[in-house]
Amino acid sequence: MVYSILHSIFKIIARVYIRLQTIGIENIPRHGGVILAPNHPSDSDSFILGIAIRRQLHTMAKEEIFRRPLPAFIVTKLNAFPVKRGQLDRQSIRAATGILKNGHVIDMYPEGTVSKNGDLQLPKLGTAFIALQAKVPVVPTVIRGTQNVMLKGQRIPRPRKVVIEFGKPLYFDEYYDKPYSKKILKAVTEQIMTEIKKLLNSNVSEETYHAHIRKHEKDYC
């Protein structure tokens, strides 16, 4: 309820203020668990990604945020759940897997951290690990422009255009029944990163974008 209200409000603000545009949103399955795997240009990516899609987005957030009552209350209402970064934290893995198995959407950043220069960084294997654990598809995603909205140390977002593009979902059924192996995780991660790179290198013109919107208006989820 709180999520839906906030989502509607922020969506209107985002459309006007940062001219938030989405491409390929019909590639997000309408039902069932799915991971959105974007590049990571800014700390605000999860927030803006959550506004951009119609399905509710669940997201991992630093455990520290949950230590203070007010921020904890707010981020919990925004479907965030805690993760201990860089530590052995099976609880957050179980939480993510459970959320996905219950048919929800999670964003996971293969790069792990925000890119300082906008370039793709070497990926970590966590996204692939959780995708295989939960047996869900991964939608490669590219976020453009969020790095210009919130500069480091800035408190008020700047009115800069943001475009989010979703690729075709990737299915990894062939690996589901195989025993865990780093080799498999690397193969899955490679596939995700290749698709993110392809999207990053694609150059969608405004005209193509609007034609796309008209064609897929009904599919927006």
């Binding site: 860089g86 052995l88 934290d89 099976r90 970590k124 294997l125 966590g126 690990f129």
Partner: peptide
């Protein structure tokens, strides 16, 4: 790394039918 240890714990638990608390890593 930490993800590898998570995977190893899971694999040992499944193979030997035991439970390994995170703290025991």
């Amino acid at each position: 790394d930490s993800l590898d240890f998570i995977a190893l714990l899971q694999a040992f638990e499944a193979e030997f039918n035991i439970q390994i608390p995170d703290a025991d890593v």
